[in-house]
Amino acid sequence: MAEIQRLLTEEDAAELRRARELLENPGLAARLVDQLGAPIEQGLQRLPQKWHREIGRISKTALGKAADAALFTLDDAPFRAPSPRWHQAAVAASGAVGGFFGLSALAVELPISTTIMLRSIIDIARSQGESISSPATKAACLEVFALGSTRQGTDDAAETGYYAARMALSGLVSEVGRAGASGAGSSASAALLALLRKVAERFGVAVTDKALAQLVPALGAIGGATINSIFITHFQDMATGHFLIRKLERKYGQAFIAEAYQALA
């Protein structure tokens, strides 16, 4: 580790440590339980089985609508400072409405909150020097929804690490970049749809945690706003870590940064 550290500037080493702290923190379910307490632990046992399938469908639809609405509505201005608090306030407002109407409002509320979150992720990517007109950057923004979305104890818990999660999506992310760069519209659309389907599998786990929390009657509209605030903060952290890593990879190379990241463990 000492040899690797010597090859990084002091600022870059600090950014790598910060990225790892963000990316390897507990997932959304742990954050919900930590901040909202015992009622959430009770809610984690109460979701009907049929809702798991429905949440998967809603998650995929929400990501598709978010990609259409958010990916092309920000200026391509690398290194512009992000506005996380504005996006947090907007998502909290949508959560308050969803919390008031309960779990049945998820199909309406989730596409709205997911679009706002994706705009925030794009905003963070731009602040780290990414060109948001690049197909590879658009794919990397969607990739964030698959990071930190798996609960411990599930069958794919071994894939919860940052680089393991990226590896699982690397082929699809690369395909989106290649198809977009070639200018073949049909190929790019097919590659993006394939990536959306894969990301939705992971994102659906986080959405399930959010839905479970909203099952707790005592939380109400205030709880819905709080849950959504935790929800977006989680993915803003994932985005910040992810795009810090990508910035360092552009400077030092992916293999070197991956080794330095693992050495921090």
Rank of each mutant, 00 (worst) to 15 (best):
E11I: 15
A255E: 13
V108A: 13
A77H: 13
V144G: 10
G183W: 01
W51N: 11
E24K: 03
V207Q: 02
I121M: 04
L212Y: 02
I112V: 15
A13R: 05
S133H: 12
L169H: 14
G204V: 11
L172S: 13
A19F: 03
R119D: 09
T137R: 07
A140G: 08
L244T: 15
A146S: 15
L74W: 06
F72M: 13
R119N: 13
T160V: 09
Q88Y: 00
I227Q: 03
E54H: 06
R246A: 13
A89C: 01
A168C: 05
T114G: 03
F203T: 06
A206N: 08
A19V: 05
L36D: 09
G180P: 01
S127M: 04
T240A: 01
E21F: 14
S182V: 08
A225I: 10
T115L: 00
G161D: 15
A255Y: 02
I122V: 15
R20P: 06
G220M: 02
A67G: 11
L193N: 14
E54I: 03
Y162D: 11
E130Y: 01
P135M: 04
A67S: 13
I124M: 03
S83N: 15
R17T: 12
N228Q: 06
H87P: 02
I121F: 00
A70N: 05
P135Q: 02
P84V: 00
V199W: 08
A157L: 07
S187D: 13
E259Q: 15
I116M: 08
L196R: 11
A168F: 02
E11D: 12
V199C: 06
A179C: 11
L212V: 05
R80T: 15
I227L: 09
F243D: 02
G37N: 05
L74P: 02
W51G: 10
L192K: 10
F203Q: 08
A66K: 11
A30P: 04
A19D: 00
D75H: 11
I132C: 06
T137H: 04
L16V: 04
R53Y: 12
Q49K: 12
A211F: 09
G129K: 03
N228S: 12
E259I: 04
K65C: 06
R80Q: 15
A107D: 14
G241K: 05
P217E: 10
I116Q: 14
A225H: 01
F79A: 09
A77Y: 09
A194F: 02
P135S: 07
M167H: 12
D155Y: 11
D12C: 14
S134W: 10
A139H: 03
A62F: 03
E3N: 10
Q42Y: 06
A125C: 13
D34F: 08
Y163C: 06
M238L: 07
T226N: 04
K210A: 15
L8A: 04
G161H: 12
L106V: 13
